[in-house]
């Protein structure tokens, strides 16, 4: 199962848990699976069929530029958080 770290603003969707588990071959499938267990997750992260532009995703500690298309393994760890920048 894929471990998903849930940021504080989204824990209301999943009974206050900071880590949940789900399956999916890529981020899109993972979000859809999360939404089945915890309704509202999809709308928090996606705008129709696209990842919201202010959401960043880390897979196994690395920020991915592939967004919803990022592939996952059964032992992946995934984090969602706001996109970052600098000056």
């Amino acid at each position: 199962m894929i471990r998903v770290h849930i940021p504080a603003p989204m824990r209301g969707y999943c009974e206050g848990k900071d880590v949940v588990e789900a399956n999916g071959d890529n981020i899109r499938q993972l979000i859809l699976a999360l939404d089945c267990s915890y309704p509202g997750m999809k709308d928090a992260l996606m705008d129709q069929d696209l990842l919201k532009p202010d959401v960043a995703i880390a897979v196994d500690g690395h920020i991915t530029p592939l967004g919803l298309l990022q592939g996952l393994s059964e032992v992946s760890e995934v984090s969602f958080f706001p996109a970052i920048g600098g000056g």
């Binding site: 504080a8 603003p9 989204m10 900071d18 928090a44 202010d54 706001p82």
Partner: peptide, 20 residues
Amino acid sequence: AFIAPTEAHIANASRIHMAN
């Protein structure tokens, strides 16, 4: 503006909440 809706309306502000 930050991933999830602001929990309560605050005039002229968006809120981000993070915790461990």
